[in-house]
Structures are given as structure tokens and as C-alpha cells.
Amino acid sequence: MTATNGQTTLSIRDLHVSVEDAEILRGVTLDIPAGEVHALMGPNGSGKSTLANALMGHPAYEITAGQVHFKGQDVLELETDERARLGMFLAFQYPAEIPGVRVASFLRLALNARRETEISVMEFRRLLMEKMQMLRMDPKFASRYLNEGFSGGEKKRNEILQLAVLEPELAILDETDSGLDIDALRIVADGVNRLRGSDLGVLVITHYQRLLNYIEPDRVHVLIDGRVVESGGKELAERLEAEGYERYGAAAASEDA
């Protein structure tokens, strides 16, 4: 927790990312200062998840140019787990299902990986139950296999549960709102808002204004075809909601990915 207010925790410079030789991100530059919430919007296929996964070190995404720094460290030099232990967290658009691995045992290992001293089983149990209660999750999810057979909304809640337990310093939420019912949306937003004002930086990827009504963004960025084409205040999101992406031309083709 060395970042001070106003100091940039995440800095992305001219990032180019390819998948299987196709260039998806074509020079993204973005700063997220500690404590700020930024929204990233854009049509299907514009590269939002690619950015999120490239930041986290997904093995299929190749960084061909550019830099990413987090808390002053060169992130691109780090393995995925090292990035996580540095404080980065991605709530996935499509979380993996891992049969046989129970939510509670996995999450305790994950928490211990971030801590200097191991949390006791009892203390962890208490923490987990408290967070599950906050997210109105049935305690029986703790002993279920990770995401296996979870409904779409349950998976999203489980991502937020992990966020709440692990308490990262940068949270990237990739369409966490889609699939969530109104109550869950409010609970998630409450959770994020509660952590706001501290050092937590947030990148919210969403298609909908609705979430941004609950989590008011400090900045909104529009990603089209692998480039940030416009950035502005929260009113930018409102305008996109009303007008769509047609004004950016190139995006007109992206009706549905």
C-alpha cells in the first residue's frame, strides 16, 4: 500500500496485443490512478477482454509492443500469479469451471498466497462467511466445486466474493454486471463503493449505463477496434447509452460478435 492519492497505480503505454497473429489491441494508453474508478466501454469484439487478459498475463495474448506498470513495477515481466500477488485482480467475463476444487479451499490458498503469515482455518472460515453474507451467497457454495454447475449470475457473484476476500489494489471487472440480477448488481456496486476512496483502483468493463448509475466512474474510455478513441467524464457513458457507437464509424460493423 505505497500508492498515495493521485499517484498512478496502473499505467498502460501504447500497448499492442496480438492473438494468433491477429493484432487486437493497436496502441492502448490508459492511466488509472489509485482510488479512481474508470469505465471501459466499446462494441463487441473491440478488445476489452483482450486488454483485461493481457494485463493479467493470459498465455494466448502476445504483447508485441508497449508497456504496463503497476505500482511502479514492470508488469509484463511478471507471471500471472506474481501480478496477482502484487495486487491485481480480474473478475472474468467467463470464469473457468474447475471440477473437484472447492471454493473455500481454493480461496484460502489464494489468500495465503497474498499474505505473509497463513490465516488460520477458523479465521478464514469466519472471513469467508462474513463476505458471503455480505454478497447474500448461500454458505453451501463454499464447499461446491469452483464454478462447476454455477448459474451465470452465481459465477459472477463468486468472482466478487474472491475480490472481497482477496482485497486487491486493482480490480478489473469484465462485464461483471451481465448476468447479474438487480439485487446482485446493487450488492456488487455497494461492495466496490465501500472500497472506494482507499487505494483501490477499478477498471469496470461494461456495456450498460445501469451499473455506472451505481458505481459512478471518475473517467469513461471508449475502445474501438483496439484503440481508445475517446475519454471523458461520466456523461460520456450516458451519451453512448443514447447514441451507441455509430459516431465512431469503424464500429458500425460490430452489431454482434
Binding site: D81, A84, F89, I98, V101, A113, L166
Partner: peptide, 19 residues
């Protein structure tokens, strides 16, 4: 699966043995 577990801070060996 390794990527998902890695994104939560688990190293390769830890992730493999968990799997």
C-alpha cells in the same frame, strides 16, 4: 485452469497440485 488459479495468486506448482 492454470491461468484462472494463477490470476488468484497461485503459482504453477500450487495450481497443478490443486488440480
Amino acid at each position: 485452469h492454470l491461468y484462472y488459479l494463477g490470476s488468484r495468486g497461485l503459482g504453477l506448482d500450487q495450481a497443478r497440485s490443486l488440480i
